[in-house]
Simulated assay, not measured.
Amino acid sequence: MTTTVFSPTRRHWLGLLTASAVLTVAGCSTETPVKLANLTVQDLDGNPVSLGDYAGKPVAITFWATTCPGCVAEIPHMTALYQKFASKGVQVIGLAMSYDELGQLKAMVADKHIPYTVLQDKTGAAAQAFGPVRLTPTFFVLDGKGNIRYQKIGPFDTARVDQLLTELTTG
């Protein structure tokens, strides 16, 4: 049996990589608010929409793209969140990346019967403010103060998000 000895520097980097992987897989929360009032995106007709209009209530938001298979697979889960929590005041938003064309977005909304709000981050400013977001799908839950309570790259934990949104809408 051989024993591998890692230098302190290598152990440090391995620890950081492990912690990063755990947060990526499990989702995480912070108490850092996203300044929604400063962010303008556009609706599917190209009209400006202030994300500040969604402040004050919980928000479930995913950064996605029409060409991303994981994003398309996430649509039924986002739809389920909308169906369960929209009547309780949760804003459910699909925020398309800057490279998605409005025509593609409209076609996807129609084809997949997406009931929740779909907007486009045409300038990339929202993706920058949330991280920056570089990979899709990237999902967030914000509380009414704009604090990130859950963040996940890739498929989100539906049970955990359901529990969190229940807490945010009943307490």
Rank of each mutant, 00 (worst) to 15 (best):
M1I: 06
M1C: 08
T2R: 15
T3N: 11
T4Y: 12
T4W: 14
T4C: 00
V5Q: 11
V5P: 00
V5Y: 13
S7F: 06
P8Q: 07
P8V: 05
T9E: 15
R10S: 08
R10Y: 08
R11I: 00
R11W: 00
H12Q: 11
H12E: 12
L14P: 01
L14Y: 07
L17R: 04
T18V: 03
A19T: 04
A19V: 07
A19E: 10
A19P: 00
S20A: 15
V22I: 15
L23G: 04
T24Y: 07
V25A: 07
V25W: 08
V25F: 03
G27K: 03
C28N: 05
C28A: 13
C28T: 14
S29W: 12
T30Y: 01
T30N: 02
E31F: 10
E31W: 11
P33L: 11
P33G: 10
V34H: 09
K35M: 11
L36Q: 02
A37P: 01
A37N: 14
A37H: 13
N38V: 07
L39Q: 01
L39K: 05
T40A: 13
D43A: 09
D45I: 11
D45G: 14
G46H: 10
G46A: 08
G46N: 08
G46I: 12
P48N: 14
P48G: 11
V49P: 00
V49E: 02
S50W: 03
L51P: 01
L51T: 02
L51K: 03
G52L: 10
Y54I: 00
Y54Q: 01
A55H: 11
A55V: 06
